[in-house]
Write a protein that binds this DNA or RNA. Structure first.
Length: 705
RNA sequence: GCGCGAUUAGCUCAGUGGUAGAGCGUCACAUUGACAUUGUGAAGGCCGGAGGUCCGAUCCCUCCAUCGCGCACCA
């Protein structure tokens, strides 16, 4: 053996050997020959094909690889199916930033040009990410790799879309949606971030009433004045009553509306409504069948209805509008310290401008009900357990899902829209030539799907639902391992869509890991310049050191501070293992290579002790207690095998009889090989390398656990 | 507002109904040894606060505090 362990030499060599062996493919495993072998399936959360791997990827690779390797060694037909995500909106944002740096803009390109450029961009990134996963030791089956834009995946997504329409769970309609004026697209409720702010609250004189608003710039079209039906203060005003009054740009006639959504305790208990730009107001307008007018355009600028303010951005218009209202004597008072919550784009922080738009919505309640039942019945179990409650709470309060996005990069929505009435018709075969509603001419829906609509179908789509052989063998999958952060975006939707499409849960267990933070416990971000590149750590200390460093001391669901010190400590552990192996090999009796040459040492106390430890570790792995399993084998190898057993055998190895020497060697070799096996899921490279030095021609990855 | 999580050694975190553990750091001693180091040992914690259950609570229950995070259409 070399005096030093060179991870940079060993790791790529070992990985190639594994890959060449074919054992990543469950059909080529020794277990495949055994008809009784249980399948074990993990579908990889596909990394976004828009950038490099980060520390979070190293975390998921480590945990999923541990699960997969453990299952494989236990004789299961282990499948870990890799993939890459086109990541619609996320990728388009990344690409737009790139364009911006080059002095270009997506608004100067056709959709087709943009799509082609982003396609090339993702294909390049995909290769980087795939190499990164290999460097991290991922024992996934590359022959089954999927991309979310693969034609077979798209076909399955389309079939689900159609089925949703046939089952009347899909509708297209003018609904108020969350619109980002910067990104020029609508979102679902999950892409919105609520931010607390302090703004002025303006009390405006509206005829005989005083209304409170934080957004005077939306008030141009306001012609309904709403109050609670039980409000004694306004009992004199009747529902539907007309009132003439002077408003921002001249006299108007307002109509009194009584609606119990009004909070009598807020402000004056009276408000005017702007249904086009506010969800509450929209709901009131729906109930009373009121007119809706657009005030603000898609870029966040005022429309002609604003008169002299038309064309202004809302932020600059606000002060000027208040100035004018003040001059007209319509400002009753201003509360400068009004604390409220505003909705912003999760990506750019721009204020969300609600707009009424025609979008595709999935009616979620029926889907959520099935998911709730499945979770309550324990058909899907969560680690850590408290995520169960979090999921149920979200599912119980679910709202309809807007799955349309006004961006080029994504799966095109297979539908035709009517030029005249706007009606939408799902059309998978390009067969719809006229609007079934009014007979008008139709055009292709220019929108794409919310990327999560397709990712939500990932477990069954990747396995070739409904007829694929893999689907029959490997679905439902065993575990979905992913980041706790995307539980609503992804996990709950996979459960709902999986149940909907296949009538079965997509996975039996969900394991959620936390964030990987920097050494100081801060979230990594480019702006803070504290991003740790896992591949650099790997080069410096070895992948094995990084992997076990991500596992020990990390419980499911909690975040982990990644300190380089710790990884260095585990690099030292690699060195320790190497030296243990060297020492034992140095003491190998000359003839031991021949079978049966070593004495039987199975009655030694050390053997029994190890067997007991192994049983504990196995139980921890079954229970997803990877941190305990890893710490126990780590501690055993260093502080029992090296510090105690080897030390106590040294005198016999040096001065004992031949028989004693051989017995000592047999004991140490047995304990080392068993330790390597137990450590392999955590530190696959060094364990494989050392194993093959002792057992040439065999492969630890497929040794029986 | 509702909910969830956290609070344990200097730091980062495990853990258990029976006098508290790891890694890193600190200190002392040893060691050229299988060990770009390692070994032996030490210091260091009223296990956030207050009640309760129990023979016994860091662990279970209640309340509180602080921090973090979700969810929430009050203009």
């Amino acid at each position: 053996m070399e005096p030093r362990y060179e991870s940079n030499e060993v790791e790529p060599r070992i990985y190639k050997q594994w890959e060449a062996s074919g054992y990543f493919d469950p059909d080529k495993l020794p277990a495949a020959a055994n008809p009784g072998a249980e399948p074990f399936t993990v579908i990889m959360p596909p990394p976004n094909a828009n950038g490099h791997l980060h520390a979070g990827h190293a975390m998921f690779v480590t945990i999923e690889d541990i699960m997969t390797r453990f299952a494989r060694m236990r004789g299961k037909r282990a499948l870990w199916l890799p993939g890459m995500d086109h990541a619609g909106f996320e990728t388009q944002v990344v690409y737009e930033r790139k364009l911006e740096k080059e002095g270009r803009s997506r608004f100067d390109m056709t959709r087709e040009e943009l799509r082609q450029e982003i396609w090339d961009f993702t294909q390049e990134n995909k290769v980087h990410s795939e190499m990164g996963l290999r460097a991290l030791g991922a024992s996934c089956d590359w022959s089954r790799e999927k991309f979310t834009l693969d034609p077979d995946i798209v076909k399955i997504v389309y079939a689900t879309f159609k089925r949703l329409q046939d089952d009347e769970l899909l509708y297209r309609g003018k609904r108020i949606v969350s619109w980002c004026p910067k990104h020029q697209t609508s979102f679902s409720d999950l892409e919105i971030e609520d931010v607390e702010r302090v703004d002025p609250l303006y009390y405006l004189q509206y005829g005989p009433f005083v209304i409170a608003t934080a957004r005077p710039e939306t008030k141009f079209g306001d012609k309904y004045v709403v109050m609670h039906p039980d409000d004694a203060r306004y009992a004199q005003y009747k529902d539907g009553q007309k009132i003439d009054l002077e408003w921002i740009n001249g006299p108007i006639t307002a109509t009194v509306i009584k609606d119990s959504a009004i909070d009598m305790a807020f402000g004056t208990g009276v408000m005017t409504i702007t249904p086009w730009h506010d969800a509450t107001d929209f709901a009131i307008a729906e109930r009373h069948d009121l007119d809706r007018e657009q005030i603000i355009d898609e870029r966040g600028k005022l429309l002609p209805i604003a008169g002299e303010f038309a064309g202004m951005k809302i932020t600059e218009a606000r002060a000027k509008i208040i100035e004018k209202l003040r001059a007209k004597g319509l400002v009753a008072k201003i509360d400068e310290n009004y604390k409220h919550v505003v909705r912003t784009c999760y990506k750019c922080g721009t204020l969300i401008e609600p707009q009424i738009k025609d979008q595709w919505f999935v009616q979620m309640k029926p889907l959520a009900e099935r998911a709730i039942k499945a979770i309550e019945r324990g058909e899907v179990a969560f680690t850590p357990d408290h995520y169960k409650k979090i999921c149920l709470h979200w599912l119980e309060n679910i709202i309809d899902w807007n799955i349309s996005r006004q961006i080029a990069w994504g799966i095109p929505i297979p539908a035709k829209l009517c030029d005249q009435c706007g009606h939408g018709t799902v059309d998978l075969e390009d067969a719809v030539k006229a609007c079934p509603q009014c007979g008008g001419a139709v055009h292709q829906d220019p929108d794409t799907f919310d990327t999560w609509f397709s990712s939500g179908q990932w477990p069954f789509a990747t396995l070739g639902y409904p007829d694929g052989r893999d689907f029959k063998t490997f679905y439902p999958t065993d575990v979905m391992e992913t980041a706790g952060e995307i539980i609503f975006f992804w996990v709950t939707r996979m459960i709902m869509l999986g149940l909907y499409a296949t009538d079965r849960v997509p996975f039996r267990k969900v394991y959620l890991h936390g964030l990987v933070l920097d050494a100081k416990g801060q979230k990594m971000s480019k702006s803070k310049n504290n991003v740790i590149d896992p591949l650099e750590i790997t080069k410096k200390y070895g992948t094995d050191a990084l992997r076990i460093g991500l596992v020990i001391g990390n419980t499911p669901g909690t975040s982990l501070a990644l300190a380089e010190d710790r990884i260095r400590g585990y690099r030292n552990f690699s060195t320790k293992i190497w030296n243990i192996a060297r020492f034992i090999l140095m003491n190998r009796p000359a003839e031991s290579a021949e079978a049966g040459a070593l004495p039987d040492i199975s009655d030694r106390e050390e053997i029994r002790q190890f067997a007991a430890l192994k049983a504990e570790i196995t139980a921890h792995l079954e229970a997803f207690e990877f941190h305990l399993a890893a710490e126990k084998i780590y501690h055993y190898i260093w502080h029992t095998l090296a510090d105690k057993v080897i030390e106590s055998e040294k005198p016999k190895l040096r001065d004992g009889s031949d028989a004693e020497k051989r017995a000592s060697y047999a004991l140490l070799e047995h304990l080392l090989l068993e330790s390597l096996k137990t450590l392999h899921p955590f530190m696959p490279f060094i364990t494989e390398e050392v194993w093959q030095i002792f057992r040439p021609g065999t492969m630890l990855m497929v040794e029986p656990w």
